[in-house]
Design a protein around this nucleic acid. Structure first.
Lengths: 252, 252
DNA sequence: ACCTGAACACCGTTCAAGT
DNA sequence: ACCTGAACACCGTTCAAGT
């Protein structure tokens, strides 16, 4: 007989486990537990999150949570999909596909930055909860409108959204490090740069970095990152058009 | 006084902690410990890795490792940089920049896929070890040769290598899941698809997926992914060229 | 200089028991 | 139906002690 492999809460999990009694003892609830999880992950980070910590936050014993959720991983999947629901999807009845892609890209980036714990989970789990599926559908629809041939849509989609995933992931982690170290982004950046420059035998590396910094002008770290993100999106749009996508409204 | 914030083994860590005695008691060594760590992470995954597990593998008591390494995080940073060293860098004296970028992209993807534990660490740590710096230097050099203006090189770099990071990350995790479930990629994929299709109220979503699958033809999951990756790289090259990069050898 | 053992403050999860 | 307490098999790390 086939091995009982667990794939996801959404696929193998028991249905909702919602409360059956009208007079609850503690007022607990899958939704409430998920919300508390997201709140704790935001506030204290994934490293500090635990079932016991969560239970304490809910004013309940550690094991009560297990009535509503099978494992910690299941709970993380629920939190992941909850967060995915924050990505606002474009209204496809207006504007062109570039605007839609940009909106999705910007909003997906925002999700990864405001919830740095999300990106490891996206990699780790199948991410097929209801909100994730709405997001996927929106992404696929928007690529359909790109003018790329069906054969090429998946590749174009990957180019754009894996880029955003990578970009938002390192950005989110960096912001997280800054916050936990109690520094601004620019302070942390300067500190890391100067520490690196103290290392021996890295003249070539440092030269590169310095050149790049100067070329970027005197902006803040955040401004540079925003500009890099915007330019990368322009590269992707131009590339999709060159590979058979619908031309933009104005390509001067 | 400034807070004593730990940034990285490479920046704040004690230097090398190499052995001073000629007659070692156990033959332990930073390098040996790092290699054992990589081997265990590959074989059993990040979730199962622990200092105690590592010590057992080295035939030593759990706390011996702490003589060579301050914390588990430091050890993970060492393992990360060790893995980064596997990315073979292009010989920049031959071929054009596209070939170099492609080589770096393909090799970086390979790293992320063969060591799925690497990608969370890339996000989590500064990744400024010696091998990481060699990699960064190579990436920056190669972008310099792209013909993009200095102002735009960082954005172009992000577009390409954050894409590869995202792509390799989800690919690596997927392969990992398949291996641990004892299924082939195609089996696992079919299973997930059919499980998703059992969910209620997802007709629109499924329709999309089915269309996409048919458009992809009857290839295996691996073939589809390779094709998507190659096409995405073509999109990026075309986009970089359109935004001011050096034209390719032949653009028919 | 290098390694050990005991101990501390944690984990996720199981299970029998309560109401 | 829902919640608790005790227990099991783990963690990372500290610290005093050994050689």
């Amino acid at each position: 007989m086939a091995a009982a492999v667990r794939t996801s809460v959404w696929l193998d999990g028991k249905t909702t486990r919602s409360r059956k009694t009208s007079q609850p003892a503690t007022g607990l609830d899958r939704q409430k537990i998920t919300e508390a999880t997201v709140r704790l992950l935001d506030a204290e980070g994934a490293a500090k999150f635990s079932m016991r910590r969560l239970a304490a936050d809910l004013g309940v014993t550690a094991m009560s949570v297990y009535w509503y959720v099978d494992t910690k991983d299941d709970l993380l999947e629920l939190a992941l999909d909850q967060a995915m629901g924050e990505v606002v999807l474009p209204d496809e009845s207006v504007d062109d596909w570039r605007t839609h892609v940009r909106q999705l890209a910007v909003n997906y980036r925002k999700l990864l930055v405001t919830h740095p714990w999300v990106s490891p989970l996206v990699g780790e789990f199948l991410n097929v909860g209801p909100n994730a599926q709405l997001f996927s559908t929106a992404v696929m629809n928007v690529m359909k409108a790109s003018g790329l041939s069906p054969r090429h849509q998946a590749g174009g989609l990957a180019a754009v959204f894996q880029f955003v995933y990578g970009f938002g992931t390192v950005e989110g982690h960096f912001l997280d490090r800054c916050a936990r170290a109690g520094m601004t982004q620019d302070e942390y950046f300067a500190r890391a740069m100067s520490a690196v420059s103290l290392n021996p035998g890295l003249d070539a590396m440092m030269e590169q970095s310095r050149d790049l910094m100067e070329a970027r002008g005197g902006e803040t770290v955040e401004e540079m990152r925003d500009r890099d993100f915007d330019f990368a999106l322009e590269v992707l749009f131009a590339g999709i058009e060159a590979m058979g996508g619908r031309p933009g409204p104005s390509t001067p």
